[in-house]
């Protein structure tokens, strides 16, 4: 056995996608201060998303939603040992540069914040920090991957406490992947055109039957049953935004969703953790929403 200084590479696709692999089967929780971050970590969260207002409050308050104050992000980084993610506005590469300089573990280029560019998303390849992006369908997911996203989350409709849009988006992405997987090689060119996605990625999905990066679910998950539902629909992990800290007993809700995510195939465990939880967040009927965040991003 010999060893000298081993040359090493940072920021490779394998290293960036690798952290997403480590988050599989876990719950990523939105937190707005170090106290909430501790509650999340205590409950078994795999990561926290540091932001100033949870989506339900952004929706209520209106105005321009931007990247969080670096001080708040640093306080949360100091409070927990698990990965800390933060959000940048769609297309706002300067916010992303700042978040990378702050040493956050993941950047969410998120429709929950007010978009900064109505045509272009961030070119994510030059960054060392990995990015997660939302998608409502397979074409959108593949466009984000072509820009360098290392993790895709189905968008759902953030801040509503209503899982219906998350289900719609997951089912759409899965159905489109099944279509590609069963397609003849000759059909992939036209399918790529329909999906408005790069041919090479379309061919990769057709061969593998799945995305080249993990697929998580976000937007409206607010009970252990919701988590079990989306995992059974093929999500590999869940983001829970307003659903925890807008519920009656956040610490218990957080723990219950963590357990339901692990034991999603065992209804007896999901039943047990759902028992006597107190009320979930009140929520919104999405049909009556004035603003749909999922429509942001293209």
């Amino acid at each position: 056995m010999t060893s000298s200084t081993n040359p090493s590479v940072t920021g490779s696709a394998l290293v960036k996608r690798g952290l997403a692999d480590m988050l599989r089967g876990g719950v990523i929780m939105d937190v707005v201060n170090p106290e909430q971050a501790k509650i999340a970590e205590d409950a078994g969260a795999v990561a926290v998303m540091a932001l100033e207002r949870v989506p339900a409050d952004i929706r209520r308050d209106g105005g321009v939603a931007r990247m969080s104050d670096p001080l708040m992000i640093q306080e949360i980084q100091a409070a927990v040992t698990i990965p800390v993610m933060a959000k940048a506005r769609i297309g706002h590469f300067a916010e992303a540069q700042i978040l990378q300089a702050l040493d956050v573990d993941y950047i969410d280029e998120s429709e929950v914040l007010t978009p900064a560019d109505e045509e272009n998303h961030i070119d994510k390849w030059p960054f060392t920090v990995p990015f997660v992006c939302g998608a409502t369908n397979l074409g959108e997911a593949l466009r984000r991957i072509s820009e360098g996203a290392c993790l895709i989350r189905s968008k759902g409709e953030a801040g509503t406490g209503n899982v219906v849009e998350a289900v719609r988006h997951l089912r759409t992405i899965n159905a489109q992947m099944r279509r590609l997987h069963s397609a003849d090689a000759n059909e992939l060119y036209a399918l790529a055109k329909d999906l408005q996605a790069p041919l090479a990625l379309v061919q990769e999905v057709a061969l593998a039957g799945k995305l080249p990066v993990p697929l998580f679910c976000a937007g409206g998950i607010s009970t252990p049953a919701d988590a079990s539902l989306v995992l059974q629909l093929g999500a590999e992990a869940v983001f829970v935004g307003s659903g925890i800290f807008k519920s009656e007993d956040p610490a218990r809700m957080a723990q219950a969703i963590v357990e339901a995510t692990t034991h999603f195939e065992d209804p007896s465990v999901v039943a047990k953790v759902s028992t006597g939880l107190g009320s979930a967040m009140k929520g919104w009927e999405t049909a009556t929403l004035e603003q749909r965040l999922a429509e942001r991003g293209w």
């Binding site: 060893s3 040359p7 394998l14 952290l19 920090v129």
Partner: peptide, 19 residues
Amino acid sequence: RRNGYGRQIASFESTLDVK
């Protein structure tokens, strides 16, 4: 030491010489 090589930005690939 947890995260003994740093946070995610410091994550890396290297070749190891295994006995």
